[in-house]
Design a binder for these strands. Structure first.
Length: 416
RNA sequence: GUGGAUGUAGUUCAAUGGCAGAGCGCCGGAUUGUGGUUCCGGUCGUUGCGGGUUCGAGCCCCGUCAUCCACCCCA
């Protein structure tokens, strides 16, 4: 075995392809029914696009980005997430000047250099939604409702929606300060990870699993108490829209998104059965990102979901993929003498859109009948010496075991 | 990036340091023109890779690669 697939990547064979298509088709259909249209951006961008948007300090940028330089020494990166590219495209094409609302969906591979694990890959596929152009809490709810409807149509049951508000930049800063003040006296007892978190992202302190850190969490200040009037009102309205749309959720002040650009609404979809990698989708509002990219101050909200984890979750619930497509008829040719007639029927049927299977490597009638049966075809079309002489093939119904000779028109009638 | 487990036929799994095996699958046959069930026969291996210990290594040791689990992070 000379060549091996790169670590953290995988091949999708036809056996799985049908399931992928089903999931993707469903997503497209639901997105379109909400008025979203597809946008496709490059798989790589200038490294800065991601550094600026995700935040220089985020893990994604710090250690997980695939960076490379091109022949002229310019620094690029394989995209670790989808939003930055969409926002870059939006601003670059002056959609912020045009005004109005943009509703995008995207589907494609993302790349992160991370240690692979079940549900975690170095190249993985995401589907995502970006709504740009309004701060109306209605759109927060719309985007979430879209995702929930998508999952419902796939038949996924055991998934929970957790929402939070991280407020605007000001609320967020106030809260970080409050957290630092709270944790400061306990610094020495914190685990090494949390000592780092204290400086970089204090809110991360709250979902630490170390015993001592966890005891501190109970009395820690909550983000929700540090929202200003507008942010509080926004969050209340989002929840109220969700109620009206009959979307069930759980408020979880611990929800912290990993990318720095989120403001106000943040949410995550959790499937407990998935183990450590239990988040199948996540997103939130990013009201300051477009202006950060040099565009007009424009509010936006979006989310991304992971196909691999979604597929795993569907599997856990026993929601099988699609059955492989079976041939309608299996062509059996007995002996060299009839080959020309067999090929003639094969070609004609295929031109008429019938899925015919045929295997020239099988010799005996018996072996071909076995193969016909194994193929799952309903009919076997038999062409041997007798049929050649009569210029009429025999069609056998493999379910009823009935057979009779047919001319081409009869054959088509039955197969259609 | 850290800690741990695993790696044997296409696949699922056996094999006390002593001849690498079984089920399933695959191929062929049981009336040379009739499938499913059954029966018979056959094919299938650099034991992930590279070193070491040993008379002898699938098994013990070291390294490496990959997968899985947890941490971390997140989709």
């Amino acid at each position: 075995m000379k060549y091996k697939i790169p670590r953290g990547t995988y091949d999708i064979f036809p056996k799985d392809s049908a399931r992928w298509h089903h999931v993707i088709d469903t997503f497209r259909r639901v997105a379109q029914s909400f008025g979203y249209e597809e946008i496709t951006t490059p798989i790589f961008e200038m490294a800065e696009v991601f550094e600026r948007s995700s935040g220089e300090s985020s893990d994604v940028v710090q250690k997980e980005m695939y960076r490379f330089q091109d022949q002229k020494g310019r620094s690029f990166a394989l995209r670790p997430e989808g939003t930055a590219g969409v926002v870059r495209a939006y601003v670059e094409n002056h959609l912020d000047r045009v005004g109005g609302k943009s509703k995008f969906y995207y589907i494609g591979p993302m790349f992160r250099y991370d240690r692979p694990q079940a549900g975690r890959y170095r190249q993985f596929y995401q589907y995502g939604i970006e709504f740009i152009g309004s701060n109306n809490p209605y759109y927060d709810a719309e985007v979430i409702a879209l995702e929930m409807q998508f999952l419902a149509e796939l038949g996924l049951k055991n998934v929970s929606l957790e929402i939070n508000s991280v407020g605007c930049a000001q609320c967020s800063e106030d809260y970080d300060e409050a957290l630092r003040a709270y944790y400061k006296p306990h610094m020495d007892g914190l685990c090494p990870d949390c000592q780092k978190r204290y400086h970089v992202r204090p809110r991360r302190l709250q979902d630490c699993k170390a015993a001592y850190c966890r005891t501190l969490k109970a009395a820690a200040p909550s983000q929700l108490d540090y929202l200003d009037q507008d942010c509080k009102e926004h969050f209340t309205q989002v929840k109220s829209y969700l109620d009206q749309m009959d979307v069930k959720y759980q408020v979880n002040p611990g929800i912290v998104r990993g990318l720095d650009y989120y403001t106000n609404t943040a949410f995550e979809l959790i499937v407990d059965a998935l183990g450590a990698q239990n988040s199948i989708a996540g997103g939130g509002r990013y009201n300051s990102l477009i202006s950060q990219f040099g565009g007009k101050d424009t509010a936006a909200i979006g989310f991304a979901g992971g196909f691999e984890r979604l597929l795993l979750a569907l599997e856990k619930e026993g929601i099988a993929g699609y059955e492989p497509i079976k041939p309608r008829v299996y062509l059996i040719g007995i002996g060299e003498a009839v080959r020309a007639m067999a090929i003639e029927y094969l070609s004609k049927l295929r031109k008429d859109g019938i899925y015919v299977e045929y295997n020239p490597d099988k010799s005996s009638f018996r072996a071909q009948m076995k193969a016909a049966d194994a193929s799952g075809a309903r009919y076997a079309l038999i062409i041997g010496e007798d049929e050649l002489a009569a210029k009429m093939p025999t069609l056998k119904d493999l379910e009823s075991s009935q057979q009779h000779s047919v001319d081409y028109r009869q054959l088509l009638d039955i197969l259609n």
